[in-house]
């Protein structure tokens, strides 16, 4: 008799949430890290003087912050599994390997979205509202953030499973994660840019970039899903 994959999926996801709610390790460090990054940005803006239209560079800066903060979370999420060797016990149970991928990716996506939900209003408040406000509708920002987070969590889950078993851990994760994220970030920054600046043809242009985000998510997350079995079994 095969145990239900859904029950296993829920169990892994719930376990990650319960552990996080008990320690708040990941969410606090990720949120604080993002907020601290904003302080550093402010230094750069001040140095650049009043001539710089901050809204033009904000989209890119938002994603710089989120890429780095997501790597913090991805690393943590597998250190739990690895340090006590529990992943071994999960592998010994009759679970289909892709279920592990889906559950861990869903957890990582959840945590990343929570951090984004907390910090993006601060971003907008600090860097956008005082300089002309949001040009596009707010839903665009939400769609862009979520769409790109799917790809980050999906590919990141695979890469973090690799990096947790290497000698360099976080360094190795960064090395693999960032060049693979390049196309996704490009599209996400463009879409975010439209959300912040608005413009005449904002909506169709926005969806054109979101199509890239969606395409990347589909191809790369599917590939990560397919490759996961090899990685987790090694």
């Amino acid at each position: 008799m095969r145990p239900s994959s859904w029950r296993q999926f829920v169990a892994i996801l719930r376990k990650d949430i319960v552990m996080e709610l008990r320690t708040f390790e990941m969410l606090t460090s990720m949120t604080l890290y993002t907020l601290l990054t904003m302080v550093i940005y402010q230094i750069a803006f001040t140095a650049a003087g009043g001539g710089l239209d901050v809204r033009l560079v904000t989209p890119g800066l938002i994603w710089v912050a989120f890429v780095f903060t997501s790597m913090l979370g991805l690393n943590r999420s597998f250190v739990h599994e690895k340090d006590q060797g529990v992943i071994e016990a999960i592998l010994l149970s009759p679970i289909d390997r892709p279920v592990i991928f889906l559950a861990k990716a869903a957890g990582n996506l959840l945590f990343l979205t929570i951090v984004e939900a907390v910090t993006i209003p601060v971003f907008v408040f600090l860097f956008v509202l005082s300089r002309g406000g949001l040009g596009g509708p707010a839903w665009m920002l939400v769609v862009a953030l979520f769409g790109a987070s799917v790809g980050m969590a999906g590919v990141g889950t695979l890469l973090a499973t690799i990096s947790v078993n290497t000698k360099g851990r976080d360094f190795i994760l960064a090395l693999m994660f960032m060049p693979l994220m390049y196309p996704l970030l490009t599209a996400a920054v463009q879409a975010t840019s439209i959300a912040i600046l608005g413009g005449v043809d904002a909506v169709p242009a926005f969806w054109r970039w979101m199509a890239w985000v969606g395409g990347y998510d589909a191809i790369m997350v599917l590939a990560a899903y397919g490759l996961y079995e090899f990685v987790i079994g090694a």
């Binding site: 590919v155 690799i162 390049y182 990560a224 990685v231 090694a234």
Partner: peptide, 14 residues
Amino acid sequence: ATYAAVFGSLAFLS
């Protein structure tokens, strides 16, 4: 070998 192969295939795809 496995990790390298997985990363190599993803790199080529991207």
